[in-house]
Design a protein around this nucleic acid. Structure first.
Length: 411
DNA sequence: CGGCCTTTGAAGATC
DNA sequence: GATCTTCAAAGGCCG
């Protein structure tokens, strides 16, 4: 995967983008290939105990910090097999027969007319998909979907709605197909900046990186090895987040069969095109859409809405933001890190995960960036009118505006 | 019981 | 365009 190796001029992030924030001490935590969570934990703990101390525990080369093979690779191995199988099923139409993600209303069907698919080779540039869209989704977003020629899916969005579901399940995670043409120039991965030490914890960290090239190519192999970060409804995991009705999906094209409640979830408050409000978040299959949070669980405060609007507001499902690459990575790796150490405190776990994230190679991170990009894309397709702002605390927003206004008044 | 902690990234808001 | 803020997940911890 030469394009990901960070060679000169590669799109993933030129070296000149890798702003060095390395501290005077240049203390980088050594992350060897078999680095354990225990070790990470120790580092975290020790650094928490004494922030300034032990700033020079170790340092190592970039190569060491970005090992080609990682202890986590077994996860990819397992998932790669799964995706290979999924791909095979797609190619022989198996997806229509037995979707791996029955609860997911959207499918990207491989374009079987694509000659490049027939030989089994899956060149990224050759991969195209026939996207299935909601039959009831007559929305701007879907219009964008229709235009598969659009080189920049990013333009449609980064507005993605997700509906939340049960615990620990993200709705958009069942993404398993990847189309190179959807590599969005608008959704560049940003990362891989040299680590710096967190002044507070002493743990190496990276400042919010500048974005890499908007184009982060992914080889077929990399795509195939993308581990499903959440694995919701992953058959082999044997943990269906949602019960699947006996007999499974009878509709030959489950992706096209959206019931009223689902369509309303997709549209409800966010799209003028939407249909009726959802009585509940159940898919046709009886599977609630995971991205939608029941209003009972979370209600968004509405600022200046009329009483009637309030009423509607109360019924609005909380559509969560799509997970970014790191979040997807965390979801996938958290359990493993927790298993490797006895620690369960998320704050500490997240520190470890953050360090591991930085230790990932570009290729490995690219998997998650691509997955996240797909999630955003799907999110925008499912909830065309949704905006991240919808989830902002209305109170905070108004307070903020008020503060700004008062400041201006003073001036 | 609700908010905090802690991470990175995306998106919106603001300057 | 740069910068700041919020939110996404997670679960222990604390007031």
């Amino acid at each position: 995967m030469p394009q990901l190796n960070g060679g000169g001029g590669d799109d993933l992030g030129a070296n000149d983008e890798m702003i060095s924030f390395k501290d005077e001490g240049e203390q980088e935590e050594k992350i060897s290939e078999n680095v354990s969570a225990e070790r990470d934990l120790d580092d975290v703990k020790s650094s928490l105990v004494n922030e300034s101390e032990n700033n020079s525990s170790s340092s190592d080369s970039e190569a060491e910090r970005r090992p080609r093979t990682r202890p986590d690779s077994d996860v990819y191995e397992k998932t790669r097999d799964y995706f290979s199988e999924a791909l095979r099923r797609q190619q022989d139409g198996g997806f229509f027969k037995s979707p791996h993600y029955p609860g997911y209303p959207f499918l990207m069907i491989p374009d079987l007319t694509n000659p490049y698919l027939s030989n089994g080779s899956l060149s990224p540039s050759a991969r195209t998909y026939l996207q299935m869209k909601w039959p009831l989704l007559d929305v701007p977003g879907s219009a964008a979907i229709k235009d598969s020629r659009s080189p920049t899916p990013g333009h449609l969005s980064n507005k993605v709605p997700v509906v939340q579901h049960a615990h620990h399940v993200h709705p958009l995670t069942p993404l398993i197909t990847y189309s190179n043409e959807h590599f969005s120039p608008g959704t560049p991965p940003s990362h891989l900046s040299p680590e710096i030490l967190d002044p507070k914890t002493g743990i190496p960290r990276t400042p919010h990186p500048s974005e890499l090239s908007p184009y982060y190519p992914l080889s077929p192999g990399a795509v195939g090895s993308i581990a499903h970060p959440l694995g919701w409804l992953m058959p082999q995991q044997g943990q269906h987040m949602y019960s699947i009705p006996p007999g499974g999906f009878r509709h030959p094209y489950p992706a096209l069969a959206m019931n009223a409640s689902m369509s309303s979830l997709v549209s409800s408050r966010f799209s003028p095109h939407m249909v009726t409000p959802p009585p509940h978040s159940l898919h046709q299959t009886g599977i609630p859409h995971p991205a939608i949070v029941s209003p009972a669980i979370k209600q968004e405060p509405s600022g200046d809405l009329s009483p009637s609007m309030h009423k509607d507001e109360d019924k609005k499902p909380h559509i969560k933001k799509p997970l970014n690459a790191f979040m997807l990575y965390m979801k996938e790796m958290r359990a493993k890190v927790v298993a490797e150490c006895t620690l369960k405190e998320s704050a500490a776990i997240n520190q470890i995960l953050g360090r591991r994230w930085h230790s990932l190679s570009r290729e490995e991170q690219a998997k998650y960036y691509e997955l996240a990009r797909k999630e955003r894309q799907l999110h925008s397709q499912l909830y065309p009118g949704w905006s991240a702002r919808d989830n902002y605390s209305q109170l905070n927003v108004t307070e903020k505006k008020w503060h700004i206004l008062t400041m201006k008044t003073k001036n």
